[in-house]
Write a protein that binds this DNA or RNA. Structure first.
Ligand SMILES: [Zn+2]
Ligand SMILES: [Zn+2]
Ligand SMILES: [Zn+2]
Ligand SMILES: [Zn+2]
Lengths: 164, 164
DNA sequence: GCTATAATGTTATAGTATAACACTTAAAAG
DNA sequence: CTTTTAAGTGTTATACTATAACATTATAGC
C-alpha cells in the first residue's frame, strides 16, 4: 500500500532530492486520504517548504516564502499548518532550535530522535530502538512512565567531519 | 573536597529541600572558587531562585521575583546570570519548555538527560551511562560525531502515576 | 441549494531572548 | 593607596517565536 520509508541516515549531498521530496508529498497525500483528513493546498505547500531540504526551517522562514505567494499570510497561517502536519506526524519540531523538519516515516508513530550537525545544520532522524530501550530501562528504574522522549544530538555529520 | 552529589531520582515531596538548596549553593560557591570566577550576589540569587524547587522555572518567572528585590531588574539581568550559571554547569536549560533547572552535579561535565513529569512539572536529572552509550553507538553507525546530546523525556513521575 | 463544520484571513498581543551602550564595581598593576 | 583595566550590571530598545480572538471563506453532507 505504501512504499518503504527512505533511509534515515545523513543524505548524500548529491542525492536526488526532487525524488525525495516527491515521495514525501505522496506519502503525505496517502496518509491524509487514509485518515480522512484534508491535505489542503496550504498545508501541502508548507510541507513542501519544510521538505525543501534536510535542514530544519524556522516558522518565520516559511512565512517569508508564503508571503510572496499568498495575500495575507501571517504567523497563524504557518503555525496552523505546522500544527496539522505535526499532529499527523508529517513534521517534527526541533525543540532546541525552534525549527521544523519533515519526517521520513510518518506512518510509524514515534518521538523524534535527531542527529543535528552544528556546522551545516542538516538533521537526520535516527529512530534507534537501542536508544529507546535504554531510555525506557533507565526511566523504569526511577519509576517513571515514559510518554514522549525528545532526543536531539548536536554534533558533526560525516561530511563536515571530513572537512573539519 | 566536595560532598557527594545528591541522588538524581525524583525527590520525595517531603524531602528536606532547605538542606538540598544549601548544598547546591555551597557546591556552586566551591566550584566558582576553584575556577577563579565570581559568584556575585546576583548570580547567587538567581541560582537560589532556580533551586527554589525541582521544577524548571522560566526566565521571566525569575525576573518577576528579582524585580521585587532590585531596582531595574530587566530581561538581560536574568539572562546574563543564567548564561553564567549554564556556562559553569550549575544550571541546565530545558529546551522543550524554555525553562531552567539547577544541576545537582555541576562538577561532572555532562549534557542533560531529564525526566519531566507532565502533571506536576517536576524534572529529575537522569545521567544514565547506558543511554549515553546507546546514543554514541547509534550515532557512530551513522558516522556522526556526538557533541552535546539533549534528552528530555516527558511522562509521569512515580508520584503522579499513583494518583493517575 | 442549505446548513453545519472546517479552514483560512486578519488584527492584535503574549512570551522568549538579545543588541547596544552607559554606568558601576571590583580586581590588578604600579 | 591610587591609577588603570576589566568584569559586571543597569537601561533602553528591539528581534524573534507563538498564540488569542473573531471575521470570513470554502468544503462536505444533507
Ligand atoms: Zn532529500
Ligand atoms: Zn554537517
Ligand atoms: Zn530539593
Ligand atoms: Zn509528577
Amino acid at each position: 500500500m505504501r512504499q518503504a520509508a527512505p533511509t534515515t541516515t545523513f543524505m548524500d549531498t548529491g542525492h536526488d532530492h526532487a525524488h525525495c521530496l516527491d515521495e514525501a508529498l505522496d506519502r503525505a497525500a496517502a496518509l491524509c486520504a487514509d485518515r480522512g483528513v484534508r491535505l489542503t493546498a496550504l498545508r501541502r505547500r508548507v510541507l513542501e517548504l519544510v521538505w525543501g531540504g534536510h535542514k530544519p526551517l524556522g516558522a518565520y522562514d516559511i512565512l517569508e516564502t508564503l508571503k510572496a505567494e499568498r495575500r495575507g499570510a501571517a504567523p497563524p497561517t504557518v503555525y496552523r499548518a505546522l500544527d496539522f502536519l505535526r499532529t499527523h506526524g508529517l513534521v517534527h519540531r526541533i525543540e532546541s532550535q525552534n525549527s521544523f523538519v519533515g519526517c521520513p516515516d510518518p506512518n510509524k508513530p514515534h518521538g523524534g530522535q535527531f542527529l543535528i550537525c552544528r556546522t551545516c545544520g542538516l538533521a537526520a532522524e535516527l529512530n534507534d530502538s537501542g536508544v529507546d530501550q535504554a531510555i525506557r530501562k533507565s526511566a523504569a528504574k526511577a519509576g517513571f512512565s515514559v510518554g514522549r522522549p525528545i532526543i536531539e544530538i548536536q554534533g558533526l555529520c560525516p561530511h563536515c567531519r571530513k572537512k573539519g
